[in-house]
């Protein structure tokens, strides 16, 4: 996806065990910070109203 021009910080992968709630909180905070720094996603949103 990075190769196609999606900013690398728009896609995250992680591995958290069900017992690691602290890690979960850490990762959520970290990702949120990174995405905030990146700003809104503008390029990949479909602009017109969706025709279902």
């Amino acid at each position: 996806m990075e190769y196609m021009g999606v900013e690398p910080d728009r896609l995250h992968f992680s591995w958290i065990s069900s017992a690691e709630s602290t890690k979960f909180v850490e990762v959520v905070s970290e990702i949120t910070e990174k995405v905030k720094a990146l700003g809104p996603n503008t390029h990949y949103v479909k602009k017109e109203a969706k025709v279902a």
Binding site: M1, R10, H12, W15, I16, Y44, K50
Partner: peptide
Amino acid sequence: SPKFALAALREGADAVWVSG
């Protein structure tokens, strides 16, 4: 699936996070 990630971005998500 890559479908999900692209669909989310297309529908206006600012980022996608996959976690196992």
